[in-house]
Design a protein around this nucleic acid. Structure first.
Length: 799
RNA sequence: GGGCCGGUCGUCCAGUGGUCAGGACGCCACCCUUACACGGUGGAUGUCAGCGGUUCGAAUCCGCUCCGGCCCACCA
């Protein structure tokens, strides 16, 4: 059946993607090998950005390819709805703090925000033609899921209970990263750094034994009350004589030791520094742990100074800093204030400066698993391989266990109660979703002291504690153990490089702790989409490209083709410009017209006819590309094979083969036999069908439409083409050069390409295809064949 | 300070030892040749960041340097 429309139109996409919405459900009873993708649930609160669009489209390449190679694909859609961003959105919307309203009310407020923002983001995915297993939210295998659903939270809690019972969780009071903005402890991985202006305050300190003054430099003078030690570098001659002496803390008069320590930098500040037991930064935290100095809190959980700081009590750290500077000035102890720029730790979400406060938190053991995770990392293939380094670097830098408890509201509750009488922890049985703050404990009396009064745990989990069990969630770890056993590990974990230290690391840790196995068969790491100038896209800069607009303007298919042709996102960042996306679309028109041309001829014979040499030649060329696609698609490399197929279709198949066999396909003058004509028709159709099938994972729309309109078949039900066995000896370079030489000769003479020519001698390789060649170039007269280069062919124009 | 990625025509990217270094977009010229002017044919444009080394031969391998981007560790 001939194609009617003159060119590909993005309007063709809508009925197609609508038709795919329920086309690829997951059947747990499948006998096919299972291929599962642990999709990264995007956060609902913000619309899908271009990076999501690109990476999800690529996951769709993988899913469609795997289906065509005989796999049953689990490709779930998930949305992440836990955590701070939702709380912050709710606080903003209702202009109320989370702590100002009853918990129940605040959870309702969060739910309302979620209600309003959830569905919109899915729309872009649908338009992109993503073949998710399901688009409806539910609890069946393959269903779309929310990370805050009761089922998901029940799984998170069940895994906590398991780890608790295995003795991998403990509670301890330690200096922790505390974000005054979020009012909660946060993990090291949630800390960013920011350059800030500050004053380096040079302060005199009296040495007790010698009576001399040394000058220390500090950016945090408000922590002087908890001064624990003065340090200088052992190689520093200026201070060597002070080793083992005693310093008297200014203002407070406490006596502290002076010691030599390698961590003191000779050339920084004055070379001698004080270390506060309340820790001014992460480095100090580590130092205190090393020297076994007991942490003393000087800043309260509300960010205000505690009584230990004397006259600073009740002030914020900022006010306290100003006040103590005044006090030091009054006493003549402030030598000078030097303006410096230094980096301070800030919370990656609220951007507040981190305070280090001693609080009791739950920890999950991870330090003792470092070597194990290193091994898991080693055993897991990464695409691209060099991305593994990001993970290994992070593993090496882990020095403390993971603080998993958070003092927030909209997240999975820690499922614990405590006996009021004897403080025994009450752990419920796994399998249900528990909200201790709203429910009674699972026991009537404390198993230890028979007490009947209980205190609920109010804290929640770090959201990565939820996300890190996504492989277990999508394969139904707890409720379908038989299926889980068959399908685990997940086939592929695709994710961004920026969450290697969180999502990937924690997933490996937790899934291993729970299952004693590698969670993934492979990890695919994507880099980022930058704007056309190579800058990171951000709302404040205003260089954000919305995938919605791209799809609206160019269509999803153009966008998908651009993704495959622009470069390789597993190798490095890619730049995105709408001009280049538009340029990619030209090939769709070309492909459409190739198909339209071929579709205008009568149907080819169903049985393969005897082919002419030139037919075998094009099949051989096609085979090379099919072989490459089969090999590279397996390694998640779509860029090269698609470029190569595109080049083949345009510059070899259309430009040379089609031009050369056109006359035979029409056979208007009866120059060719019916069999020969059929051979051309067969080859034209066969190449087209094969190429369309090979393009189908990347270009699902146009290939489906062409296939359907021409012969009623669904290209996505076809098996991926296998490499054929055709062997042709005809040289592609020779043939294309020769075409070119003749076209050029006609052009230079200002003649039409149909102008008859006489060519007395041609390279001998052309002899087997003489009839096609003669017809294509309108060659008249006798031709002799000999060994020669195509460039040396003499063309004489007949008229 | 450590790590990763990159530095190839005006622009964006391929190319990981072997003939004149490819493509796309853009540019120039000619052509509406009955699938396609979102096309065709042809053309211009590059000391492949720099220096040194390995090799018969290097954009490609090794070393150093410089320049971008990102991550980590950082300085009281």
């Amino acid at each position: 059946m001939p194609l009617n429309e003159k060119r590909w139109d993005k309007a063709f996409e809508e009925p197609l993607y609508k038709g795919w919405r329920n086309k690829y459900p997951f059947d747990e009873k499948t006998t096919l090998p299972i291929y599962s993708i642990d999709t990264p649930p995007p956060y609902v609160n913000s619309p899908i950005h271009i990076g999501h669009a690109v990476t999800y489209a690529m996951m769709d390449f993988f899913a469609r390819f795997k289906r065509m190679t005989g796999h049953h694909v689990l490709f779930p859609l998930g949305l992440d709805r836990n955590g701070l961003p939702i709380e912050m959105a709710a606080e903003k919307k209702f202009n109320m703090g989370a702590n100002e309203v009853p918990r129940k009310k605040f959870v309702q407020m969060c739910n309302q925000v979620l209600e309003e923002s959830s569905e919109e983001s899915i729309d872009s995915f649908a338009k992109l033609g993503i073949s998710f297993s399901s688009w409806s939210f539910g609890t069946k295998l393959g269903d779309a899921y929310y990370t805050d659903s009761d089922t998901y939270r029940a799984l998170t809690q069940a895994t906590f209970i398991d780890l608790w019972n295995k003795g991998l969780v403990y509670e301890e009071k330690r200096l922790n990263n505390f974000c005054p903005g979020c009012q909660t402890t946060i993990a090291d991985s949630e800390i960013e750094r920011k350059e800030k202006d500050a004053f380096f305050n040079h302060v005199k300190v009296r040495v007790k034994e010698t009576g001399e003054d040394v000058v220390i430099a500090t950016t945090r003078p408000e922590l002087l009350s908890t001064n624990a030690i003065l340090i200088f570098n052992p190689t520093d001659k200026r201070y060597r004589h002070l080793d083992g002496k005693t310093a008297i803390t200014p203002i407070y008069g406490h006596e502290v030791p002076i010691v030599a320590d390698r961590e003191a930098a000779k050339d920084f500040g004055t070379g001698i520094a004080y270390m506060s037991a309340s820790a001014g930064d992460q480095d100090a935290v580590r130092f205190l742990r090393k020297r076994n100095i007991k942490a003393v809190q000087s800043v309260g959980e509300d960010g205000k100074m505690l009584p230990i700081t004397g006259s600073l009590e009740g002030l914020t750290t900022k006010q306290a800093r100003a006040k103590i500077i005044e006090l030091l000035k009054e006493q003549g102890l402030l030598v000078k204030q030097e303006k410096i720029r230094h980096s301070v730790p800030i919370c990656e979400r609220s951007k507040h400066e981190i305070e280090f406060i001693a609080m009791k938190e739950y920890y999950l053991k991870q330090v003792e698993f470092k070597n194990t995770i290193k091994k898991l990392s080693k055993a897991t293939p990464f695409y691209a391989p060099h991305s593994k380094q990001i993970l290994n670097d992070w593993i090496d830098s882990v020095t403390m266990d993971w603080a998993i408890s958070r003092r927030r509201v909209y997240a999975t509750e820690i499922p614990l109660w405590y006996c009021k009488a004897c403080s025994t922890s009450i752990v419920p049985p796994p399998g249900k979703y528990y909200r201790p703050w709203a429910e009674d404990p699972p026991v009537k009396a404390c198993p230890k002291c028979k007490g009947k009064e209980f205190e609920p745990e109010m804290r929640v989990f770090d959201t990565w504690f939820d996300s890190s069990v996504s492989p277990l969630y999508i394969l139904h770890y707890t409720d379908k153990p038989t299926f889980f056993k068959k399908a685990y590990p997940v086939s592929l974990r695709p994710q961004g490089k920026e969450i290697v230290r969180t999502w990937l690391f924690y997933s490996l840790l937790r899934c291993y702790q729970l299952t004693d196995q590698l969670p993934f068969d492979g990890v695919w790491i994507n880099y980022h989409i930058l704007d056309e100038n190579g800058k990171k896209m951000s709302k404040s800069v205003g260089n954000v490209i919305d995938p919605h607009d791209i799809i609206k303007q160019y269509g999803a298919e153009v966008f998908r083709l651009w993704i495959a042709t622009e470069g390789n996102i597993t190798e490095g960042d890619l730049r995105c410009s709408s001009e280049r996306i538009a340029g990619a679309g030209k090939f769709l028109t070309k492909l459409w017209n190739i198909a339209r041309f071929i579709s205008m001829f009568p149907d080819p014979p169903t049985k393969k006819p005897a082919l002419l040499d030139i037919d075998t030649w094009i099949l051989t060329e096609l085979d090379k590309r099919i072989a490459e696609a089969n090999k590279e698609f397996l390694n998640y490399n779509f860029h090269q094979p698609i470029m190569s197929l595109r080049e083949f279709m345009w510059n070899i198949f259309a430009d040379h083969y089609i031009e050369l066999v056109k006359s035979r396909a029409y056979n208007k003058e009866g120059t060719f036999s019916k069999k020969e004509q059929e051979a051309a028709l067969y080859t034209l159709n066969h190449v087209l069908d094969t190429a369309l099938t090979a393009f189908a994972p990347v270009l699902p729309f146009i290939t489906a439409k062409i296939m359907k309109d021409r012969c009623g078949k669904d290209v996505h039900e076809e098996p991926f083409p296998k490499q054929g066995t055709t062997q042709s000896t005809l040289s592609t370079v020779l043939l294309t050069t020769l075409d070119s030489v003749i076209w050029q000769a006609k052009k230079q003479a200002g003649k039409s390409l149909r102008t008859p020519v006489t060519i007395k001698e041609l390279p001998q390789e052309i002899k087997p295809i003489e009839a096609d060649f003669r017809a294509a170039h309108s060659i008249e007269g006798e031709i002799r064949y000999k060994k020669m280069k195509p460039e040396d062919v003499v063309i004489s124009l007949s008229h």
